[in-house]
Structure formats: structure tokens, C-alpha cells
């Protein structure tokens, strides 16, 4: 199996007239949950859109599953959840999944499995517009799971979810990673950092740290009991000094 699902060198992205990502180099390994953490506006969504191949204004080399990002062959192999739940409000959960399954050419039986995976069986026949925010984002997540993608790109999938559910979802991300999937999860809150195998800490379009949570704390000169938020602050202040 491929070791790195994503390999990026010298990635710069210009949005509008502004450079948003400034020459990033990184890899995302298969079989791990990688967290992309940073404050709102730092460029997380832009980075994810680049990997999925829907971002314009990209320079640098971006290789995803051995192909240049955006190659048509990748469209079957990446599961993507945009930041806003991208499902149809006027269709039920089951209808949404049936539709996307047909677009992907995936067996209809799989829709049942992904609905179970995100714990929406009881709401399968409910119209998405009448679900809570958390249920909607899970419906959107279910779509990304269709077709057993090798890379999952999840833009803030756990925002606003109840803690029990978040726990379940993180367990699912790790199950998928154990099965060889590369899982990239973004968040603007640092409290989910410890759940990731590896972290990319981002600020203003650059990475300020890249490693396991423990490695990052060590780099910041903190002990294991410290949290990533402290590490983030220490690194940023250290760079400013």
C-alpha cells in the first residue's frame, strides 16, 4: 500500500488578489488521522479544497494518491465534506444518499451502511432541512463515506456536535484509518487535537508545527500534560520574539 496519500511541495494559493497559503510542504500518510488545526481564516478550507481539486489559483506540486490533485481518476477515490453541510435540505437522508450513490455509481446497499455509520438510521426518512445542525453534518459526512474512498477530507465535521457523538465519530475516523484510509480532519478548536495521530498546526497560511501531539508539545518545551493550545501559543510567541 502507498505510504503517503498526499505529497505536497511548494504549495501556494492565491484567492482573489491575496496569497492565502504561502509555500507549504507536507505529506499526509495513509492509515492515520491527521488533524489540520488553526484559527478561523488561516487557510484550512483552502488547503482542503486544493487537495480535492476544486481550488483555483494553485501553484506547486500537489500529488494525491499518486496523481496530480484534481485528476478525474481521483473523483472516485476522495470523500470530501465541505464546511457547510452539502446535502439537499428538501430530500430525506436516504434520498440524499441514494442520489449521491447513483452519481458515484456505488451499490445502493452501501447507503444503508453509511447511514448506520453516522448513526442516522432513526432519521433516514426525515427531510434533511428538519434535522438539527449536527444531524445534517452527519448526513453530509455519510455522503463522503460512500464508495470506500482512500482519502477522506473532512472540513470541520465535528463542529457543534454533542460530545458523545463526537466521541463516536472520532472512533469511526480511527476505524477507517486502521483500514488504511488517510483521514484529514480540520478544526478551529484545539480541544480535539489529542484525538489525532498527527497534527498540522496552521496560522496565517503557514504551518507552525507538524508532528504527533507529543512531539509538538516537546518542541514547544512543554510537558505531556500541557494542551495543544498552550503549545500553539508558545510556538507563536517564540516565533514573534
Amino acid at each position: 500500500m502507498m505510504k503517503n496519500a498526499v505529497e505536497v511541495a511548494g504549495l501556494t494559493v492565491v484567492r482573489g488578489r491575496r496569497e492565502v497559503l504561502h509555500g507549504l510542504d507536507f505529506t499526509i500518510p495513509a492509515g492515520q488521522v491527521t488533524g489540520l488545526l488553526g484559527p478561523s481564516g488561516c487557510g484550512k478550507s483552502t488547503l482542503m479544497r486544493t487537495l480535492v481539486g476544486v481550488q483555483a489559483g494553485v501553484t506547486g506540486t500537489v500529488t494525491v494518491l499518486g496523481e496530480p490533485a484534481g485528476s478525474p481518476v481521483l473523483r472516485h477515490r476522495i470523500g470530501y465534506v465541505t464546511q457547510a453541510p452539502s446535502v439537499y435540505d428538501d430530500l430525506s437522508v436516504a434520498e440524499n444518499l441514494a442520489f449521491f450513490a447513483r452519481v458515484l455509481g456505488v451499490d445502493r446497499r452501501e447507503t444503508r451502511q453509511v447511514i448506520e455509520a453516522v448513526d442516522l438510521v432513526d432519521h433516514a426518512d426525515q427531510v434533511v432541512g428538519r434535522l438539527s445542525g449536527g444531524q445534517r453534518s452527519r448526513a453530509s459526512l455519510a455522503v463522503a463515506l460512500l464508495g470506500s474512498p482512500s482519502l477522506l477530507v473532512l472540513d470541520e465535521p465535528t463542529v457543534g456536535l454533542d460530545p458523545v457523538l463526537r466521541e463516536d465519530l472520532w472512533a469511526m475516523f480511527h476505524r477507517l484509518a486502521d483500514g488504511g484510509v488517510a483521514v484529514l480532519v480540520s478544526s478551529h478548536v484545539m480541544d480535539e487535537a489529542e484525538r489525532c495521530d498527527r497534527l498540522l498546526l496552521m496560522r496565517d497560511g503557514v504551518f507552525i508545527a507538524d508532528g504527533t501531539p507529543t512531539e509538538i508539545k516537546e518542541k514547544a518545551g512543554l510537558d505531556r500534560a500541557a494542551d495543544i493550545e498552550q503549545a500553539f501559543l508558545t510556538i507563536v510567541r517564540g516565533e514573534a520574539a
Partner: peptide, 13 residues
Amino acid sequence: SGGTLERLLAMPM
């Protein structure tokens, strides 16, 4: 605006 077009364009559509 709802993101479904972006999602579809990231799929084999």
C-alpha cells in the same frame, strides 16, 4: 451557495 455543486464537481460528474 449550499456547497452541493462543489461536492458534485469533486465527484465524477
